[in-house]
Design a protein around this nucleic acid. Structure first.
Lengths: 125, 125
DNA sequence: AATGATGTATCAGGGGCCTAATGCAATGAT
DNA sequence: ATCATTGCATTAGGCCCCTGATACATCATT
């Protein structure tokens, strides 16, 4: 698993989004136990305090919960996960289209370009 | 013109990308003179130092140039602009697809979702 | 009962970003 | 010549982020 850190955004937000994706994609399943903060931080090569901050963000939106001193676990409410997945995907699309239109491309350009990109780069099957 | 500032990324980078889009989209044309740093900063409601930092970034990639004490101007090399536009659009597509796949969507999902979004939200003509 | 693992909290130091306030050199306009 | 404009540079202060170190309470295990 990769934990690439880009310098232009707070690390704790990048980690937050990364783990969020792992949950939404199903890599981590409802009820799964996350690694301990210390282990998790070591794996991601960041400070435990920073990892804690990232996990707190995920707890704020009910994606994970804490079981006393047993650790942190993925929510068992699949609706929370599915709703977030829908919301995030729409947000990604919205941001993407906005950026593309900002540089002067219209709907047709966008559709054409992305189809072309996928044809050229992703159909390796 | 809107100058929305988001808190999770350095302001000078957001301003840099914003002006870059204005050039790429053709709002600012080759040879156009930009507002003075002081005026530009006031318009965007940021500090002149921050605006200067943003403009320096644009100058680094030869998108603008400085004419002594006359001000800063858009490059007259249309190739630089066109190449950057191509590069940026590919980068946006790449980042978008990566994020979408990170949350568990495949190529077909992506194409389907974005087509659906455009159908529902952008065809107001 | 003792130990280890876990979450949680705090403190100090450093770095980057942003603002505010100045100052300076060069150029164009008057 | 004088003045305003412009780019450019510097300094100081504040804020947030990140790290490193440390400490504490709780729970499960032994």
């Amino acid at each position: 698993m990769l934990w690439e850190i880009n310098s232009n955004q707070p690390i704790y937000l990048q980690i937050m989004e990364r783990i969020q994706s792992l949950i939404i994609s199903g890599y981590y399943k409802p009820g799964d136990r996350l690694p301990s903060i210390r282990d998790f931080a070591a794996t991601a090569s960041i400070n435990p305090n920073t990892m804690q901050k990232a996990l707190n963000e995920l707890e704020k939106i009910d994606l994970i919960y804490t079981n006393k001193t047993n650790g942190k676990f993925i929510t068992e409410d699949t609706n929370v996960i599915q709703n977030l997945k829908n919301q995030i995907s729409i947000q990604y699309i919205r941001d993407f289209i906005e950026k593309m239109m900002d540089i002067g491309l219209n709907e047709k350009d966008i559709i054409k370009n992305i189809n072309q990109y996928i044809q050229n780069n992703l159909n390796n099957e």
